[in-house]
Design a protein around this nucleic acid. Structure first.
Length: 592
RNA sequence: GGGGACGUAGUUCAGUUGGUUAGAACGCUGCCCUGUCACGGCAGAGGCCGCGGGUUCGAGUCCCGUCGUCCCCGCCA
């Protein structure tokens, strides 16, 4: 391989095959860097030594595929290249074969500046030749392999489940596959193998895993692709802690494979605490938690500032970021997303000038040094009263609006300033289990309760009696694993009793008939001796993205989709022929 | 569905207040060069300024629309 040869190989006769990475033509002496996925080696073509081969080497151009036979030569001390691992040697060519020529590529793998994404995705095969992409894809392979090895060593079986399955119109939108033999009927691509893995528990495969593609027809983000890979697992008879240990085990192996040692067990945090301290259910622990500073203001202060005295007053602190300039503060305002009338005070200096005592107290309580940035998020004076169905929760909807707004501000500030001020250090991995999620969320549009995780999640034993009477207060045996503000995975202990599963469907507003038509097969399966079981699924792409230090999943997925869910290389999706549609019994209402 | 950014040579970008022939770097082509390694030197080719309208004596530059890529909100059990 092109990255393999070392000083100890000097004198050997070898053959190297690869791409022309760069050529340096000095006349009677031509240097060519040959590249494959392992690295580059300098090949020397000398006119003096072999004029026929040298003449052929003059034809070489970027990205030609060549084979070179030659002798490994130790370089003279003054010509050693310390920048590459093979820099102590070079290959003196005796024979050259051009295996294939190449058109001038739109961009070169060796280019120092990166082509734009449109170009990279259209010519993905060239983009993938770049060192960075080769590294990321290798990393992905190593991580997946380490996870497989670990889970297999713990007695898990990898078992495949169908891609062509049935639509369950709850949650994300399904990708549909029309059936030819059953015109008008559709398969759905799985959003997750959820019910199949639960049925595998009923089938006696008590430890299952699968590194599996999942599909969701929703709009994309930098960290969301319509098809993505999950590390999906399920086990019988577990306490949540057993699932967590398993995840901590395979993540330790995966991060080790990427060269990082991580500490287990991970921090654990109640959902309510996450909201109150970070305003989000996936807190980034690299940045400090909120400080509640309402009591730092006198009632008169609150009135004068038109701050709601019944709602939290949140100080968001960014260490070392310092006072913002006027322009920076102006830039901040559009970044603030107000939920439920929350307000922002981005100019803390002004608070300190006008309300010196409160300002000092806030600095002290939040532990803010003189170099720290403080932004306050408060409720407006008129907000606060509501009769929301979730009013009785520990964190009421009105409070949640303040926390959530502050949480979004905290994340936005982190993204904008923390990297610049060294708060995000490479290799700083803050894992976290968020637990005790509420079972239900209230859908304001549909005016009904929906499952916060999914409808197969078991409620807490002690909350079972509140399913009908007080759904807002029911906690779920659900847990998320979070890393540096990214949700890596989500899981739960499942319902294994048919009567409870029925109750949940009912609480979600499903009639008996609906439940039966959508999930009848599953309710029936539950009746045939279902062991207690639970599991989790983690996003492989996101794990690799974080390990690669990338900002987008596209950097770790070989053939990703654009924001409009298109594949620019193969140009998908496309219209299909009328004959195909006829076969499927489908008519397209609006042709492009 | 909504908001924002961007679109100029093969590529990455610059292009002033609307004003003469649209520039640079890399890449490409040719010539020169025996120790380069982001080689160097000389010469050269390469432009529907995304597309369509409009304003103007005059548009890469201003306006409207449209397409594409990216980021975000909604959405993502």
């Amino acid at each position: 391989m092109c990255g393999a040869l070392r000083a100890s190989d000097a004198g050997k006769k070898v053959i190297l095959m690869g791409w022309v990475n760069r050529r340096r033509d000095l006349g009677a002496l031509i240097f060519v860097d040959v590249r494959d996925r392992s690295g580059v080696t300098q090949v020397v073509f000398s006119g003096e030594r072999n004029s026929a081969v040298h003449e052929k080497a003059e034809l070489l151009r970027n990205e030609f595929v060549i084979a070179v036979i030659g002798t490994v030569k130790l370089r003279d001390a003054d010509t050693i290249n310390k920048n590459i691992p093979t820099g102590e040697i070079e290959l003196v060519a005796d024979e050259l074969r051009i295996l294939n020529e190449a058109k001038h590529p739109p961009f070169l793998p060796s280019d120092t500046s990166l082509a734009n994404e449109e170009m990279r995705l259209k010519y993905r095969y060239i983009d993938l030749r770049r060192d960075a992409m080769q590294f990321n894809i290798e990393l992905r392979h190593k991580v997946a392999l380490a996870i497989r090895d670990y889970l297999a060593s713990q007695g898990f079986f990898e078992i495949e489940t169908p891609f062509m399955t049935r639509s369950t119109p709850e949650g994300a939108r399904d990708y549909l596959v029309p059936s030819r033999v059953q015109p008008g009927a559709f398969y759905a691509l799985p959003q997750s193998p959820q019910l199949f893995k639960q049925i595998l528990m009923i089938s006696g495969f008590d430890k299952y895993f699968q590194i599996v593609r999942c599909f969701r027809d929703e709009d994309l983000r930098a960290d969301r692709q319509p098809e993505f890979t999950q590390i999906d697992l399920e086990m019988s008879y577990p306490q949540p802690e057993r699932v967590w240990e398993t995840v901590e085990g395979f993540l330790t192996a995966a991060f080790k494979a990427a060269g990082h040692d991580i500490k287990t067990p991970f921090t654990r945090m109640d959902f309510d605490d996450a909201i109150r301290q970070y305003g989000i259910d996936k807190p980034d622990l690299r940045l400090p938690a909120f400080t509640e500073v309402r009591d730092c203001f006198s009632p008169a202060d609150l009135e004068q500032l038109a701050i709601n005295k019944d709602l939290p007053v949140i100080a968001v602190r960014m260490p070392g970021v310092g006072e913002l300039s006027r322009k920076e503060r102006d830039d901040l305002k559009p970044m603030f997303i107000s939920k439920g009338g929350a307000r922002i005070f981005e100019d803390f200096k002004r608070i300190e000038n006008k309300f010196a005592e409160a300002g000092a107290k806030i600095r002290q309580k939040s532990g803010a040094g003189p170099d720290d940035l403080i932004v306050l998020v408060v409720g407006s004076a008129q907000s606060g009263k509501d009769d929301h169905p979730a009013q009785k929760r520990k964190v009421t909807p009105a409070e949640l609006a303040i926390y959530a707004s502050a949480g979004l501000m905290r994340v936005a500030l982190g993204q904008k300033y923390a990297a610049k001020h060294g708060l995000f250090k490479r290799g700083d991995f803050r894992f976290l289990w968020v637990t005790n999620f509420p079972m239900f969320e209230y859908d304001e549009g549909d005016k009904r309760w929906v499952a916060a995780h999914h409808p197969f999640t078991s409620p807490h034993d002690e909350d079972m009696d509140k399913l009908e009477s007080d759904p807002a207060m029911v906690r779920a045996l659900a847990y998320d694993v979070v890393l540096n503000g990214t949700e890596l995975g989500s899981g739960s202990i499942r319902i294994h009793r048919q009567d409870i599963q029925r109750k949940i469907f009912h609480a979600l507003g499903m009639t008996e008939e609906e439940a039966k038509s959508r999930f009848g097969f599953f309710l029936e399966a539950l009746e045939y001796g279902t062991p207690p079981h639970g599991g989790i699924a983690l996003g492989l792409d996101r794990i690799v993205m974080i390990l690669a230090g990338a900002d987008s999943l596209r950097e770790v997925i070989p053939f990703p989709k654009t924001a409009a869910a298109k594949d620019l290389m193969v140009d998908a999706p496309t219209p299909v022929t009328d004959a195909q549609l006829r076969d499927l019994g489908i008519a397209v209402a609006k042709k492009p």
